[in-house]
């Protein structure tokens, strides 16, 4: 009965020409979107996380640091935006780590495709997730009384810079997601890196209030540059030197960790 259609389905003369890298990456992005449709809880980290962060830090520190939560919100929102998105990039690694243990990655790796497309596709969707987090935070910020001096365009520019940095930072997590075997260990390592990076920066307070030795670290922390640039773009002051440095850092992250990620991806046991 089915044998006839079975054999017919096998004799396939035409082999299509290889998918372009772009198409392959978009196909992997499509897969990631489908997975979100089936498991919408995956969006928990980019929706609930930002809301909690924003409310918590604004009301916890606002009175103490700036005297009023309204004033503090204008100062801290760009910072928390950067911090939250940076924190969320961690899930890129955790998701990949879980995903890669499954047999389907063997299939991906044995397909004649541009190999980085597997990860680039997933990262494209992650950038969409990061934008969702940013949108939620800015909207909530406005409801709470936040105002951007440079207006809407300033916010858009700042978010673009943050997304670009987040995309670059993600390659650190993809590399760790491939190399580190257990999810628990990966979580611990990610936290260990992210906590100092985000807290020992200009996210919450002006670094000039810190002791010298701490200022030294804060001033070279990449997160500080992204926070300062975002603040500048949102409130309308010149941050071209920060933007330059962020570009160097981001391109460097992609070059180093993108290469390492692909190396470990190809040579995974």
């Amino acid at each position: 009965m089915e044998n006839n259609s079975l054999e017919k389905s096998i004799t396939l003369e035409k082999r299509p020409s290889k998918a372009s890298p772009m198409n392959a990456a978009l196909t992997f992005a499509w897969r990631a979107l489908l997975r979100i449709r089936y498991v919408p809880e995956q969006l928990f980290d980019v929706t609930v996380f930002p809301i909690i962060f924003l409310l918590m830090f604004t009301y916890l520190f606002g009175g103490a640091i700036s005297g009023s939560t309204g004033e503090y919100l204008d100062f801290v929102l760009p910072g928390i935006l950067v911090m939250t998105v940076a924190m969320i990039t961690m899930y890129t690694g955790l998701d990949l780590n879980k995903d890669i243990e499954k047999g389907v990655f063997d299939r991906f790796r044995s397909l004649p495709i541009w190999q980085p497309s597997v990860l680039v596709g997933a990262l494209l969707v992650d950038v969409v997730r990061y934008s969702l987090a940013a949108t939620i935070m800015v909207t909530l910020g406005y409801i709470l009384g936040f105002r951007a001096e440079a207006g809407f365009s300033g916010i858009v520019l700042a978010v673009l810079v943050i997304l670009f940095f987040a995309f670059s930072l993600s390659w650190v997590w993809t590399m760790l997601g491939i190399v580190v075997r257990s999810e628990k260990a990966l979580m611990a390592i990610s936290m260990m890196l992210l906590f100092p990076l985000t807290f020992l920066s200009s996210v919450f307070v002006d670094p000039t209030t810190m002791p010298n030795w701490l200022q030294y670290f804060v001033d070279i922390n990449p997160i500080t540059f992204v926070v300062d640039a975002s603040r500048g773009l949102i409130h309308g002051y010149d941050v071209s030197s920060e933007l330059m440095i962020i570009t160097y850092i981001s391109v460097g992250l992609i070059a180093v960790f993108g290469t390492l990620t692909m190396y470990f991806f190809r040579n995974k046991n």
Binding site: A19, A24, R107, L111
Partner: peptide, 22 residues
């Protein structure tokens, strides 16, 4: 072991692979 994406439907898996092979 699992050599397709278990979260997706059978048809989606085949379309997905079809797109990847061009």
């Amino acid at each position: 072991f699992a050599s397709v994406d278990e979260e997706l439907s059978g048809r989606e898996n085949l379309i997905f692979i079809g797109r990847l092979v061009g």
